Amino acid sequence: MERMLFVFLLMTSTVSLAQKVERTLIIKDMDSQLPIEDVTVLVAKTKQILVSNKEGEVSFIVNGNSNLQFSHPSYVGITVRPATLKQNGTIIYLKSSLNKLDELVVTRQHPQKLLKSLLANSIKKFNIPARLKVYCREFFKLNGVHSYYTDGLLNFQIVGDQKKLNSTILVEQNRSFGVVEEEVSADLLGYNLNNIMENYYTFKYLAPILDPKAKDNYYFLVRSYSENDAYYVLTATPLDNSKGLLDEFKIIYDNQKKLIIEVSSKISEISLARKTSVAKVGAKNIYMSNFKATYRVEDTNYFLVSSKEEIGFEKVYKKETKNIEVSNYLVTTNFSNQNYTYREPQVFKNKALINKGNSILTNYWDFSGLIATDEEQRIITIIENKM
């Protein structure tokens, strides 16, 4: 049974390698000619999902002809036929509508109440149970030097309901490189894979602006979204007199379907400038924190398609202060409503892949749904060579 499961999972990550055709595309803004990050590309035939990196690149393998669907909240979506693609290096241009102005939207209810309604409807519409085949990548930086790298192919099976969600993880393949001091190893585990999906599917990161008292600290605003007539954008910005280290929030949502399309947040520069460092041993003085999650509506399906989290802080130890940065990326490469079967010993229960032994069966990272940029690949190679 265990071997059969292994073969099944491996097949999903190496679909039809016979007669394979490799494609690399670069996605750019039609007006600025600059690469576009976080474009979702759907390979219609295989239902594989790709996300463009900072250089606007996506790389994938197709077996036969397949239309490609390009979408991004800030650009007009397009479908490209395979006959128009070169073997490699085809540039795909997307049209933005940045020349339009966002207009203030007057709502009958306070934006915070509107947000709560959006969350409730979005959570209700998520496909549960569901299986997400995810590519996970994480970089760790210590005192300005990249010291550790890990990535892997994971299957998340999400079950439960709105009140109680659970995700079970099976790891297909993974790799880890680098050495980290034992003293800071606990800080490597900042992104817990065993609850990360629950957080994304309950919009836990929006908790600070859902509290009734948030009205005293945040300015809420709803505007039309110039890049897409069907979308609105809701923002929550810390007031000038607010206290504490607060984030700025941006929520893009489909106003017709009342579904959240994108959630992002970052530390407010104003609140960061007012924040004083704490010298107490064990203190974690955060200086950078970014988060972004995108969701996809596809026919009757609604699911997480990608996420990106970055955090940077100074950790105070007994003898010195150390600078730590962690960046984590998730991309849903395939989505299914079907459950998989497994045995309890096969379930991944650790917090992060860092403590799991390497299991490399294919070069899965080259066609993972999120290919490394030139700079990221340089970092990965340096860390790997240190082993």
Rank of each mutant, 00 (worst) to 15 (best):
R3V: 10
M4E: 11
M4N: 11
F6K: 11
F8N: 15
L9A: 08
L10G: 10
M11T: 12
M11H: 07
T12G: 04
S13C: 06
T14C: 12
T14I: 15
L25C: 05
K28W: 07
S32Y: 12
E37A: 15
D38S: 07
V39K: 03
T40K: 13
L42Q: 04
A44I: 05
Q48P: 03
K54I: 11
E55N: 14
E57V: 13
F60K: 02
N63E: 03
N67W: 13
L68Q: 01
Q69C: 10
P73D: 15
Y75G: 02
Y75V: 01
V76Q: 13
V80Y: 02
L85V: 11
K86W: 06
Q87F: 10
G89S: 15
I92Q: 01
Y93I: 07
K95M: 08
L101F: 11
V105R: 14
P111F: 08
Q112R: 15
L115E: 01
L115S: 08
K116T: 13
L118R: 05
L118A: 05
A120M: 09
S122N: 09
N127Q: 09
A130Y: 01
C136W: 12
F140N: 00
K141F: 06
G144P: 05
G144N: 10
G144I: 02
Y149P: 04
L154T: 03
L154M: 09
F156S: 01
Q157T: 07
G160D: 05
G160H: 10
Q162Y: 08
K164F: 13
K164P: 04
L170E: 01
V171F: 02
R175G: 00
R175I: 07
F177H: 02
V179Q: 06
V179H: 11
E181V: 01
Y200V: 05
Y201L: 10
F203S: 04
L206W: 06
K213M: 14
A214T: 02
K215P: 04
Y219Q: 15
R223A: 09
S224D: 15
S226Q: 12
N228R: 09
Y231Q: 11
S242N: 05
K243N: 09
K243Q: 12
K243F: 13
L246G: 00
E248V: 12
I251K: 06
D254H: 00
K258S: 08
L259P: 01
L259W: 00
I270G: 03
S271M: 08
L272M: 08
K275N: 12
A279E: 14
K284S: 09
K284M: 14
N285L: 08
Y287T: 06
S289T: 04
Y295D: 10
V297E: 11
V297K: 03
N301G: 04
L304N: 09
V305T: 05
V305Y: 03
E310T: 11
I311T: 09
K318F: 11
K318V: 05
K319H: 10
E325M: 12
S327V: 06
S327E: 06
L330M: 07
T333Q: 08
N334I: 04
N337Y: 05
R343F: 15
R343P: 04
E344M: 07
P345C: 07
Q346V: 02
G357L: 12
S359T: 14
D366S: 13
S368G: 15
S368D: 05
T373H: 14
R378E: 13
